[in-house]
């Protein structure tokens, strides 16, 4: 009993020391660390790094929108080692939504956004013409794809039966399910895959995607993917780390550097509430300042 009390008191103490709430003009400081950048949200380094809490609002600028916020608060941390930078986002979500392989299921997700050019302060809502933004997007469904293999029809409906698919081998009159085993000829019957749509990528290696946009409806996946991430669902909290190099060779990536203040923004989706695309929660209406120590 005493031990539990002591632990909970310690937890309260730690939180009160390292956490501040964002208000207008507040700064998220990316703390300088030495050694490897944390690739996991469970890494110890986060415990000694200050976090800030964000109030989230429903996206209402563009159609479609959501009437009320489905996630109202999120917490964010950042650290960097001079070469790479990591962000950790955490928010309460009692439902773990990681299916995109059913017609009525949507994935939990989060994203961070930067102006592509340092001098710009583009429209917070996905940038604007000639003022592009750079986005790193994490999805719970992609986390599951990378951890357990591409989630497909047989995972959503384990007892389903099919006679076969065109040009796909059958073993003992049963279709061979894993789509990655399909030949290119067989994949031609799956239009999204044949069209090389990035969301139809059945061989996803990282749970994040780098994108650019110049306003609503222009979101485009990058040809060169340089970011990484890791998300865990821990007692009804999503804890997600997104990492990337401060500077990359890709001109479509925002350049981040030490001793320099950038601006940044965040968005969070709750799949079970039908959140997808523009149906999302965003930080309340302003770019945040990011200081990289």
């Amino acid at each position: 009993m005493n031990i539990i009390k002591t632990l909970s008191l310690t937890a309260v103490f730690v939180l009160s020391v390292v956490s501040v709430s964002f208000a207008a003009g507040n700064v998220l400081t990316s703390k300088a660390i030495t050694g490897a950048i944390p690739s996991s949200p469970a890494d110890k380094v986060w415990e000694t790094t200050a976090s800030v809490e964000m109030d989230l609002l429903p996206q209402i600028v563009a159609v479609p929108s959501i009437g009320t916020a489905t996630i109202s608060k999120a917490r964010v941390w950042s650290v960097n080692n001079g070469t790479e930078i990591a962000f950790k986002l955490e928010w309460f979500d009692s439902t773990r939504d990681e299916a995109l392989n059913m017609p009525d299921k949507y994935s939990d997700a989060c994203a961070i956004q930067f102006p592509l050019k340092d001098s710009d302060k583009p429209n917070l809502a996905m940038g604007e013409k000639d003022k592009p933004v750079y986005i790193v997007h994490w999805k719970a469904a992609w986390e599951k794809d990378t951890a357990m293999g591409y989630q497909d029809v047989e995972h959503a409906y384990p007892n389903y039966n099919v006679d076969g698919y065109p040009l796909v081998k059958t073993v003992e009159n049963k279709a061979v399910y894993p789509v990655n085993s399909f030949s290119d000829e067989a994949k031609a019957f799956m239009a999204g895959i044949a069209a090389k749509n990035p969301v139809s990528n059945t061989d996803r290696r990282v749970p994040v995607e780098e994108l650019n946009a110049e306003g609503f409806g222009t979101l485009t996946s990058q040809s060169s993917q340089d970011a990484n991430g890791k998300g865990i669902w821990d007692y009804a909290y999503w804890k997600v780390v997104i990492t990337r190099k401060l500077m990359t060779d890709d001109t479509a990536d925002t350049v981040l550097s030490k001793e320099r203040t950038s601006i940044i923004s965040f968005a969070v989706w709750d799949g079970s509430k039908g959140n997808i695309g523009a149906r999302k929660n965003i930080y309340e209406g302003e770019w945040l300042n990011l200081k990289i120590e």
Binding site: N101, P103, D152, M190, A191, G192, I193, V199, S200, T202
Partner: peptide
Amino acid sequence: YNNTTRVSE
């Protein structure tokens, strides 16, 4: 919605 390609058709 296509459950494999995750896009609409």
